[in-house]
Each structure stands twice: as structure tokens, then as C-alpha cells.
Design a protein around this nucleic acid. Structure first.
Length: 577
DNA sequence: GCCGTTTTCGGCCCGACTGTTTTCAGTCG
């Protein structure tokens, strides 16, 4: 049972209890627990197996919820949950995913109109049945019909790079108007989550009325969801919802904290502030005097807001309520989280020799343009036939060509390597007599994704015992929207990596982001290092590096933990082991 | 249901916008 599955069950329980009209704080407890569990760096199942009592020490998990987690892990099910679900028709709770429909209205629709599912809701809206209910009118029906159509056509959350593109375009549109003094991306995009739902943009506007009008007139707008003086929301045609908030300059810091989230992070910040006699909202930090009199304290930047509460500034990527609050209170926020400018080269690149699009020199000059000190050319090995993998003869010839082409690029060190396939039994696709000819060896799985946990893990461990292996590419094998991660004991893999000085890749290609944030964090905790690589198959993809960097930052990875921040001489030493 | 140098009981982050109201409940982030 994964953390995500446990979190989903808790959040379904929260939905169900809310509809039943249970104590809202009890509902919130389940919801908070679900969110905290999703943000954990370790799998609860692993924690439970080692030290079961640690479950109850987690933030927001007490006696009752730790017992429920134990039951889920031990039996794969939860009696309380299953009984609760029996009270609701199939598909009923998922109606809560409709925008504008919450537990209260849903309960009313069920109790008074007998609505059990989306199809019945749609029919009732079309027949104007909702208008017969108190508190609902014609607009409610229109909004719900829109929500239903959006829900059906919804592709869910975007991948991070796609969100980045949308945001870049809108920010450009806003800035070009001259109506804004400041425009800043906030929300999960600023935190660098691997998928993003809505886009959040925080602004300081010279004239909020004009600014809001400009925003809702964005050419690609499909619908205006809300239009207020400080807050408006639009839905982009075939794209995401975008929320824009305009605040005064002096409130910008507090507003940026608030609008960046995560929600759990905000709740804890405000809670801490309250204990100190302050109130924090998006307009600033206020001291609360006798008779509730409020006085604004100077806090126009994020740094000042955190300082007032008595803690260090927290980098946005860390704001997931997964230990950063405690660290910031103790002054223990990592001081040197890896930055894009720390990266001295890309160590996983393909060329047209196998399945890449560009030739050797094109790749090298792209690297030179990016100011890299070094790169590694790592085309596929023979077993990956679909990618036109090289046999021994072709590889040796390729190495020669790489070294020859590299002579033209004086300031760039080019390592001649290979992405060597990891065979089912953990042997590599080439023997040691070939591997020793390479400057760098990346081992990777491209087939047999469905081995059982023991076999898959042994496959990795054996490959990492080969003394020539430097990097494990895309270790978990997952593709965010299409392929599950391999069934793998990552704890063992990370420990072995630390022991044998094998680096684990943070691969930014396509839908990978692999390792992901929580795995990065655990790998580094266990003493392993990472390498942030693009696995680019054409030079433009080398730009995706920033998403690997942000993911590593979310995993609390510092510069010293990252192989490709090393100087050339240190890199070469590390590769020789 | 969780949590505690104000509390083991009584709190639980905080505010904007909408639609249906005539002062507010519901929803959202």
C-alpha cells in the first residue's frame, strides 16, 4: 500500500464525513493527514515495518489514524472505510470534483432530488429542477452544466513544463500592457510540483479595475469564472484555470507566501503566528492587541514575513509541510540547495548514432552555447533495438568519432560514454573489456518492467556491483501519465548506491522526472549522490534541465550531492571511483 | 480527530467571490 493510496482513502473518508455533516474539524483531520502523508519522503509501509510506533509521531497522525494506517498496511484494506463507502452510491463522491459543488449542495441534491450521479445531475439541471431548491437558482444550473462538461473533457493536471509555458505566455501578456508593477508566478508551479492544476499569478497593479479587465480579456480565454477587484479567475480554452490576485505593494511578501502555498504550509505558518500573538493573512503580518485591535507590522517581503514569525525564509520548493517548518524554526534550512547555475554539464545525451536527432558536433556546440564545462555522449547499447542500439563494434567506432569531434571544442570536455542496458539478470549489455574503454557508464532498464520486487531489486543491485557503473538512469522507470514505477526496493538500491558510489539520476526527459522529489530526498538522506540529466534526444531538450534542478531542490538536495556540479577534475576522480 | 511553555478540554488559518439573498451560506484556495 503506497502513501498515495493511503492518502486517497483518507481523503475519501473526509469527503464522506463532510457530506454526512460530521464535525468539520474531524473532517479536516482526515484531510490534513491525507495531505501530510502525500508529502512524506518515505513510504509509510517501510517506516511501519521498521518502527511501527513512528507512524503515530507524524504530524497530524494520532492514535486513531495510526491504527487505521496499520490496518491498511497489514491487511490491504480498512473496515471503517469500506463500511462508510457502502452508504454512498457508486460515483457519488466523485461529484465533489465538479467545480462549484461542495458537500452541502451535494447533500441537498441527493436528499431532495434523489441525485446519485453526474448523469442524473445533468438531467436535473437541464430540466431546471434545481431552481425549486432554496439557495439555488438558474445560474447554479448553468455553472454546474459547465462544470460537468469541463469535468468530462478534463485532462487533469498538466506536467510541469507545460504549465511553465502557459504561465510564461500569460505573464508576458500582462507585463506588455504596462498596467502592472509586479507580476509573479505563485502556486504549485512556483513550488515546482511535477504536475500543476491551476496557475496562480500574483500582481501589483497600478489600477486594479483596468488590470482585471485586461486579465479577463486574455485572447485565449474560454470562460471568465470570477471577476472581482482583487481577485479574478479565467479558464483558458483547452487549457488550465488561471487565478490572478492583485495586492498592494506593501502586502506583496505576505501575499506571495499565501499564494505560493502549499495550503498545509500556510496553515502551519498562521498557526505559529497566532501563538506569538500575530495574525498572518495575504495582506500582511499584524500584531493583535487588547480588544482585538490590529496593527500592521512591516513585512513587505517574504523574508520579513518569516522573520516576524521567528523562522528562516523557506525556499518555495520546500513548502510542503514535510519538515521545513521545524527546520526553519531551528535555523536548519539547507543553505546550499542546488541551483541551475551550479550545473556544469549534462551527463546523459543522445545523438543520431542511435535514436537522437542531432549529430555529434551539433550536440557539442549546443552544450558550448549553454556554457557547460563538460558533457557526456551516451548513446544506447545493442539490447535496446528499438532505439537502434550499438553493438560492440559500432560503439568502439562511435567513441573514436566522439573524441575526434571533441577536439574542435576547446573549452568543453566531452566524455565518451554509453547508456548500457541492464539485462534481466542484472548483467550489463557489454562486458568489462568494453566498459573499461568508456569515460562514463550509465546503466538503465529499458525492458522487463514487470519483474517481481525481489528480482527487479536484485537486477539493480547486481548491476551496481559492476565497478564500471557510474550512474543509474531514470531509476524508478515510471512515466508520469502512462507507466507505473518498477516494483523496486528503493531503500536497498539507495543504500547500495551510497556504498558503491553510484549516482542516481534525476532524469528530466519527457514524462520522467525520475527520481522524483521524495525519492531524491531519501536517496540523499541515505548518503547517495544524484546526477541531474536531461537525456536529451535533441538539443532543445537540454533546456529541460531546470525541471530536474527544481525537483532536486524539492528533495532537499544540495550542490555537494550532485555529481554534475563537480569541477572537471573532481568529476573525473568520482567516475574512476 | 489532533494537539498542548496560555489548554489533557476546547480550540482548530483566513479571506474573496458568487448566487441568492436583503445579510449570508457555500465554495474555493
Amino acid at each position: 500500500m503506497t502513501n498515495h493510496e493511503i492518502a486517497r482513502i483518507f481523503s475519501r473518508i473526509a469527503d464522506a464525513l463532510e457530506i454526512k455533516g460530521e464535525n468539520i474539524f474531524r473532517v479536516r483531520a482526515y484531510r490534513t493527514a491525507a495531505q501530510n502523508i502525500k508529502a512524506l519522503a518515505r513510504q509509510l509501509e517501510d517506516v511501519y515495518r521498521e518502527t511501527p510506533e513512528k507512524i503515530g509521531q507524524l504530524q497530524g497522525i494520532g492514535k486513531d489514524l495510526s491504527a487505521k494506517i496499520a490496518e491498511l498496511i497489514a491487511t490491504g484494506g480498512l473496515e471503517y472505510y469500506e463500511d462508510l463507502m457502502k452508504e454512498f452510491p457508486e460515483g457519488f463522491l466523485s461529484m465533489l470534483d465538479l467545480a462549484g459543488l461542495g458537500p452541502k449542495k451535494l447533500k441537498k441534491l441527493h436528499d431532495e432530488l434523489g441525485i446519485d450521479n453526474i448523469a442524473q445531475l445533468e438531467k436535473a439541471c437541464r430540466e431546471n429542477k434545481l431552481e425549486t431548491l432554496e439557495g439555488m437558482g438558474p445560474k447554479t444550473e448553468i455553472k454546474l452544466l459547465e462544470a460537468i462538461s469541463y469535468y468530462r473533457g478534463s485532462e487533469g493536471r498538466m506536467l510541469l513544463p507545460e504549465a511553465g509555458e502557459y504561465a510564461g505566455q500569460i505573464v508576458g501578456y500582462l507585463l506588455s500592457s504596462g498596467l502592472f508593477e509586479k507580476v509573479e508566478i505563485a502556486g504549485s508551479l512556483r513550488r515546482g510540483k511535477e504536475t500543476v492544476g491551476d496557475l496562480d499569478i500574483l500582481t501589483v497593479a497600478k489600477n486594479t479595475e483596468k488590470a482585471m479587465d485586461h486579465f479577463i480579456s486574455y485572447p485565449l480565454v474560454g470562460a471568465v469564472i470570477a471577476r472581482g477587484t482583487t481577485k479574478s479567475s479565467i479558464k483558458i480554452k483547452e487549457g488550465p484555470q488561471v487565478d490572478l490576485r492583485a495586492v498592494e505593494k506593501k502586502a506583496f511578501g505576505a501575499a506571495l507566501v499565501y499564494f505560493t502555498g502549499s495550503q498545509q504550509h500556510n496553515i502551519r505558518i498562521r498557526h505559529l503566528a497566532r501563538k506569538k500573538g500575530y495574525k498572518v493573512n495575504e495582506y500582511g503580518v499584524f500584531s493583535v492587541g487588547p480588544r482585538g485591535r490590529e496593527r500592521r507590522l512591516k513585512a513587505s517581503t517574504e523574508e520579513e514575513v518569516y522573520k516576524k514569525i521567528g523562522m528562516q525564509w523557506v525556499p518555495p520548493e520546500l513548502r510542503e509541510s514535510s519538515g521545513e517548518i521545524e527546520a526553519a524554526l531551528d535555523g536548519k534550512i539547507p543553505s546550499d540547495l542546488v541551483k541551475e547555475s551550479d550545473i556544469k554539464g549534462d551527463l546523459h545525451l543522445h545523438t543520431s548514432e542511435t535514436d537522437g536527432r542531432a549529430g555529434l558536433e551539433e550536440v557539442m556546440s549546443a552544450a558550448e552555447e549553454r556554457g557547460y564545462k563538460y558533457i557526456a555522449i551516451t548513446d544506447h547499447s545493442q539490447n535496446v533495438r528499438i532505439a537502434n542500439g550499438m553493438d560492440k563494434k559500432r560503439l568502439l567506432r562511435h567513441l573514436e568519432r566522439i573524441r575526434k569531434a571533441a577536439e574542435k571544442f576547446k573549452g568543453l570536455e566531452v566524455l565518451a560514454g554509453c547508456e548500457v542496458d541492464m539485462l534481466e539478470n542484472g548483467k550489463l549489455d557489454f562486458g568489462d573489456e568494453v566498459l573499461r574503454e568508456l569515460d562514463i557508464v550509465i546503466a538503465a532498464v529499458h525492458s522487463k518492467f514487470n519483474l517481481d520486487r525481489k528480482k527487479q531489486t536484485d537486477r539493480y543491485l547486481r548491476a551496481m556491483d559492476n565497478r564500471f557503473v557510474n550512474i543509474i538512469a531514470h531509476p524508478s522507470g515510471r512515466l508520469i501519465t502512462s507507466r507505473k514505477a518498477l516494483d523496486l526496493d528503493l531503500e536497498k538500491v539507495f543504500r547500495k548506491a551510497a556504498e558503491n558510489r553510484v549516482f542516481l539520476e534525476v532524469n528530466t526527459h519527457g514524462q520522467r522526472i525520475d527520481l522524483n522529489d521524495v525519492n531524491c530526498r531519501r536517496a540523499v538522506e541515505l548518503g547517495a549522490g544524484v546526477a541531474i540529466n536531461t537525456d536529451a534526444h535533441e538539443p532543445a531538450q537540454m533546456d529541460l534541465l531546470k525541471y530536474g534542478v527544481i525537483t532536486a531542490r524539492r528533495g532537499w538536495v544540495e550542490k555537494k550531492d550532485v555529481l554534475n556540479t563537480y569541477s572537471l577534475s573532481k568529476l573525473k576522480k568520482a567516475l574512476k571511483k
